[in-house]
Write a protein that binds this DNA or RNA. Structure first.
Length: 254
DNA sequence: ATCCAGGTGTGGG
DNA sequence: CCCACACATGGA
């Protein structure tokens, strides 16, 4: 399959695949719910896959997003975003399972990427995150989640008793409000779940790196104003802008 | 030893 | 609304 994408950038950019997928040489892989294995790799502009359908790949990597159009919108009158796009051309936002995304980003709280991955890997069974009911009942000591364990337990309990997937039918603001009722879900985690789990491209997660970027590149230092600025400048693709900004600021460390 | 990591909950001005 | 602080864990 042919598409504008840089698979390595996409799979290793702090998105859920970084915590949920494995790498074997050039090939990325993970187990699916039915116990089968999905492989993804790229060679000479060609995107290759095995063990899963093309439509699965298209949805997971959001290949139907028109990157050129998105680039045009978010780089307009914006030198910083223009530079980020030149540097990270082909980086895409991924569409992951909402529950797995929620678990991963609760684990991400005040944590670093290598350890988030280790934490999440301890919560897997058959390659997938334990479903809410099982996670709520499981002994998580071995995962060494620290203070996040109680958040995860409470949230698993709550999600087990609600229609979690139905949040994806609400509009962005309503869905975010509902998510933030869960333990361990503040604005940042909610936005990550909405962006990477439910596919709301208007979500703009502000973590320490994005805050640093907004200060250094745009002279903004209040979090609330960062979100307002992002919406004004990059709507409806705040999520893409955020991912390119995140990669840029981590590389440049301004 | 001290600081930091894709923050949140809580308490106080 | 804003800010300070605690919160486990482990690597630098």
């Amino acid at each position: 399959m042919r598409a504008l994408i840089n698979l390595k950038l996409t799979m290793e950019s702090g998105q859920p695949p970084e915590f949920l997928w494995n790498k074997d040489g050039e090939r990325y892989w993970r187990e699916l719910g039915d116990g089968s294995c999905c492989y993804l790799w790229q060679r000479d502009e060609e995107l290759l896959y095995q063990g899963c359908t093309e439509s699965y790949v298209r949805e997971f990597l959001r290949l139907d997003d028109n990157l050129e159009e998105i680039y045009a919108v978010i780089s307009a009158e914006d030198e910083v975003m223009t530079r980020a796009i030149e540097r990270f051309r082909g980086l895409r936002i991924t569409k992951n399972d909402p529950w797995e995304t929620l678990v991963a980003f609760i684990c991400s709280i005040n944590n670093n990427i290598p350890r988030i991955r280790r934490n999440v890997q301890c919560l897997l069974s058959g390659g997938c995150v334990l479903p809410p009911e099982q996670l709520a009942a499981a002994d998580l000591t071995r995962a060494k989640l620290g203070f996040r364990e109680s958040y995860l337990k409470a949230t698993a309990e709550r999600v087990a008793n609600m229609d979690f997937e139905a949040l994806g039918k609400l509009n962005y603001t309503e869905a975010k409000q509902e998510l933030m009722k869960l333990q361990g879900v503040g604005e940042k985690v909610a936005d990550c779940v909405l962006l990477f789990g439910f596919g709301y491209l208007e979500a703009f997660p502000v973590d320490v790196w994005i805050a640093r970027a907004m200060r250094a590149y745009y002279g903004i230092d209040k979090i609330k104003e960062m979100r307002r600025f992002a919406r004004e400048r990059w709507h409806p693709y705040e999520g893409y802008a955020q991912q390119y900004l995140y990669m840029l600021v981590r590389e440049e460390k301004p």
